[in-house]
Each structure stands twice: as structure tokens, then as C-alpha cells.
């Protein structure tokens, strides 16, 4: 039972990290129709910049803020320079964002070096405590709490504010939003920056969680986030969250109980969803092709 608990906590923590990345990916795709292949690069930049700021300042909160900020700044630059010129052209968007992914990865190597980077949780989040027989690792609980908080805030933003109303309307019909007198480009920009900031935040939180990482971490988590958006569909933030947690938990359990399947579990999840419900497990089929 205690083993099951620690696997669950592990899976939830991983799931929420993926959620931070996948939330932006699905928001941006849902609203703008842009599948951002550079998103993992932004995630990796969040990790490197955040952990660097954390090490330099000795303050974890500053590191977290810097990670998210790095994501937001990158998002702003990318939207303005790369996404706007190719708006509406899917092929070019995919090709451009992929190029950005390469450049972001190489820039990390140029600025921070290609060697593995280490990161430790701050003292107040280090170590563990026990509840009954279950060993609770503090930093994992922290990641879960932070992820849940972001999910709650994001849900409020999307469903309880006028801005969220604009986003939901834009997902369904961009042109009509313009007709009603709103500049959809501003909504796009804000969502892109928000999604990138979340990716940056995910990156910096991931650092102490895995302990050691390399620039390849961006691609690694991006693939997980892709699996999540395929499973969760691209319409609802709750669908994305559910899919992210499903992927996190499945990975945790399978890695322990059926180790040979570890590499295949995400693929199996994705293939079964694609074969059975191409619109995503939690997605709504909008009947378009």
C-alpha cells in the first residue's frame, strides 16, 4: 500500500509537470491553430534560466520567477517575430517552430554549456517525512501543489473572466470575435505569452525534481506533452490536465510493475486513443476535417 502511494505521488508530480507544458501547447493550438514545436525549447530555457537564477541568488522563489519570466519573454519574441508572419499557414508554422526548437536548444548549449546541469530543491523543500508507512518526498508534494494551483488559476481565468470568454469564443470562431469588436491578435499574443510562461515555470520546477538534466530535456518533455494533447484533445483545460495526470501515473506504475513496457507505454496510450477516438479521449468532435 505504501509503495502504491509513493508511486501515485510520483506519477502525479510528473503529471503536473507535463501539464504545465501541455496546457500552453493545447491553449495555443486550440485558439490559434498553431502546433508549437518550439514549446519544449521554451521549457528547457525556463529550466536553465531559472536554475541559473536560483543558483546565483540562492533564492528558489527568484529562480522560479525567472524561469517563468524567461518563458514569457521568449514567448513574446517568438509570437511577434516567428508566428505572426506565417499566421494561417500550417506547413510553414510547423517548419518554423521546429527550426526555433533547434535554435533554442543550440543557444542553451552556447550560453550554459552542453554538460549535464544539476539542481537541488531549496532547504525548506528538501528531504521527506512519513505519514504512517508512506514516505512523502517534500519536493514532489510541492510540485503537485504548485501544479494544482496553476490548474485552478487557469481554470478560473478561462471560465470566470471576460478574457477567458474571449479565449473560448476564439477557439470556436475567431472571425466572429473580430466581428464583435475585439482584436483577436491581442488575445493570441497574450495566450502565447501565457503558455510560454507556463512552459518556463514547468522547466524550472522540473530541475530539482529530476536533479540532473541536459538540453535534451526539452524534446523529452515535449514528446510527453504531445502524447498528452493527443489523449486529452485540445479544447478543454480539464481534459489536458486529466490526460497529463493519466500519462504521469501510467508511466510511474508501468515503470515499477512492468519495466520492459516503460518505453512503450506512452505510445500505446497514444495509439489506442488515436485508433479509438481521434478527437481525443476528452475532446469534443467538432465535426471538421
Amino acid at each position: 500500500m505504501d509503495l502504491w502511494w509513493s508511486l501515485t505521488i510520483n506519477g502525479l508530480a510528473t503529471g503536473f509537470l507535463i501539464f504545465l507544458l501541455a496546457a500552453g501547447l493545447s491553449l495555443i493550438f486550440g485558439l490559434m491553430g498553431v502546433l508549437n514545436f518550439a514549446h519544449g525549447g521554451v521549457f528547457a530555457w525556463g529550466a536553465y534560466a531559472g536554475i541559473w537564477a536560483y543558483a546565483a541568488s540562492g533564492n528558489f522563489a527568484i529562480g522560479v520567477a525567472c524561469g517563468a519570466l524567461a518563458g514569457a519573454v521568449l514567448g513574446f519574441i517568438l509570437e511577434k517575430t516567428m508566428i505572426t508572419p506565417v499566421y494561417g499557414n500550417h506547413l510553414q508554422q510547423i517548419l518554423i517552430t521546429l527550426g526555433v526548437m533547434i535554435v533554442l536548444g543550440e543557444l542553451i548549449k552556447t550560453v550554459f554549456g552542453a554538460n549535464p546541469q544539476g539542481a537541488q530543491p531549496p532547504r525548506w523543500l528538501a528531504g521527506s517525512f512519513t505519514v504512517g508507512d508512506v514516505v512523502m518526498i517534500k519536493y514532489r508534494l510541492f510540485v503537485i501543489a504548485a501544479g494544482a494551483l496553476v490548474l485552478a488559476l487557469l481554470y478560473m481565468l478561462i471560465h470566470r473572466t471576460k478574457f477567458g470568454l474571449l479565449v473560448r469564443a476564439g477557439v470556436a470562431n475567431r472571425e466572429m470575435v473580430e466581428i464583435l469588436g475585439y482584436d483577436i491578435r491581442n488575445v493570441f499574443l497574450f495566450v502565447f505569452v501565457l503558455g510560454s510562461a507556463l512552459a518556463g515555470l514547468g522547466g524550472v520546477l522540473m530541475g530539482p525534481y529530476v536533479g540532473v538534466f541536459t538540453p535534451a530535456i526539452g524534446m523529452e518533455y515535449q514528446l510527453l506533452a504531445f502524447v498528452v494533447v493527443v489523449i486529452g484533445g485540445m479544447e478543454s483545460i480539464l481534459g489536458t490536465a486529466a490526460a497529463a495526470l493519466l500519462v504521469g501515473l501510467a508511466n510511474a506504475y508501468v515503470a515499477y510493475y512492468v519495466p520492459p513496457l516503460t518505453a512503450a507505454v506512452n505510445m500505446l496510450l497514444m495509439i489506442s486513443v488515436l485508433a479509438l477516438r481521434p478527437e481525443g479521449l476528452f475532446g469534443v468532435n467538432r465535426g471538421e476535417n
Binding site: 471576460k162 470568454l165 474571449l166 473560448r168 469564443a169 477557439v171 470556436a172 470562431n173 466572429m176 470575435v177 464583435l180 479544447e235 469534443v284 467538432r286
Partner: peptide
């Protein structure tokens, strides 16, 4: 907007 209520349509 299929996903927005009548109230939300008017609010927007």
C-alpha cells in the same frame, strides 16, 4: 459559439 451559453454570448 457552440460552447458558450446565451448569457455568455450577450456578455461578449
Amino acid at each position: 459559439f457552440p460552447n458558450l451559453t446565451v448569457a455568455e454570448h450577450m456578455q461578449l
